[in-house]
């Protein structure tokens, strides 16, 4: 009761990266609150799940194992989570801001009348004093996220409703095994008590999941473009530089909305979070939502025609100029000095 809960997404018997990252975050929140970390995995043939998650510091793992529960479907997963939460009354529940978590989270929060904050970039524990009600709240979950086009950072709290729910995108939190020999218990749920046949009304006819061909997250060098690149054609310069340096091409949301590149390359709060050795930002002004996805890069080069672009303040190298002029020079001098 009153613990921190993480919903673990399963794909082909493997726990999703984002869920493992949330377990690490959940463990540290639980330590601060002096409570347990609990996890739930729902799917089919989940024998291998305990081995994957308990080392992250999970005290209790609930498994709902039934062949009808994989792949993910909204209603049965919702029923299990809602009913389990009614029994266990978690104070905090975390889910990935993935196509599963963003489908399930709102449904669960509506059923439990609890608050949910999407796409948090930071989670902390803190107090709150409500002046109007003259009431002090201890140990609330601060759900921190950029809002409103990235012009503000909002701290959201749920003072009265439980669980306090948040979704977080993959790559935002760091995953770290706590102890390979951590002792946690496994509870196998009697699935029939949690779902009813009427939950299985949708039928998945076909499913093609592919490992993304792009590996932007894993790339040590990212050449990223924004609206300032100006056109799809101009993006070719970025591809050239990425190829020469052995990196990948990313983009800001503005460049994607403008149709310059495909949305799988989006970096930022609502896209990928990356931590490369080198991030080269071309024609990116640097709104907070973009920075949320890249500011932990080891080195940043910003190329902009605007000397006042906000991204410059977090860059190691600020180049004021036109990418059509600068990028070819970078390629030229890279080649010259590596031969």
């Amino acid at each position: 009761m009153n613990n921190v809960f993480v919903y673990c997404e399963i794909e082909d018997g493997h726990v999703a990266e984002v869920s493992l990252e949330l377990l690490t975050k959940g463990r540290s929140l639980a330590n601060e609150l002096k409570c347990d970390l609990e996890a739930i995995a729902i799917g089919n043939q989940l024998e291998g799940v305990a081995k994957q998650v308990i080392p992250y510091g999970v005290d209790t793992l609930y498994l709902a194992d039934d062949k009808r529960l994989y792949p993910y479907q909204t209603l049965p997963h919702n029923s299990i989570v809602v009913n389990l939460f009614k029994e266990e009354q978690p104070q905090i529940a975390l889910m990935g801001a993935s196509s599963i978590g963003r489908d399930l989270g709102p449904r669960v929060s509506s059923a439990l009348h609890s608050g949910l904050t999407a796409d948090c970039t930071s989670l902390e524990i803190g107090d709150h004093f409500d002046k109007k009600a003259d009431k002090n709240y201890k140990n609330l979950l601060y759900q921190i996220r950029p809002a409103f086009g990235g012009n503000i950072i909002a701290t959201i709290i749920n003072p009265d409703c439980r669980p306090q729910m948040a979704t977080v995108r993959e790559g935002v939190m760091k995953k770290e095994i706590l102890d390979p020999k951590y002792k946690g218990k496994v509870v196998n749920l009697d699935v029939s008590k949690y779902v009813s046949d009427s939950d299985f009304v949708a039928e998945i006819i076909e499913r093609h999941m592919e490992k993304s061909k792009l590996n932007i997250k894993g790339s040590p060098i990212i050449v990223s473009g924004g609206y300032g690149v100006g056109s799809k054609e101009n993006f070719k310069l970025l591809y050239d530089l990425a190829e020469v340096l052995g990196g990948e091409v990313g983009a800001s949301r503005a460049a994607i909305d403008a149709g310059y590149v495909e949305h799988e390359r989006q970096i930022g709060q609502t896209g990928l979070t990356v931590r490369p050795k080198l991030y080269i930002a071309c024609g990116i002004s640097g709104q907070i939502q973009h920075r949320a996805g890249m500011e932990q890069s080891a080195q940043i080069i910003a190329i902009n025609t605007d000397p006042e672009a906000p991204i410059n303040s977090i860059a190691d190298y600020v180049i004021t100029g036109d990418i059509a002029d600068i990028i070819p020079k970078m390629i030229k001098y890279y080649k010259k000095n590596t031969k």
Partner: peptide, 8 residues
Amino acid sequence: PTKVKSIE
């Protein structure tokens, strides 16, 4: 249920 505690 969600309240904005602060805006920066």
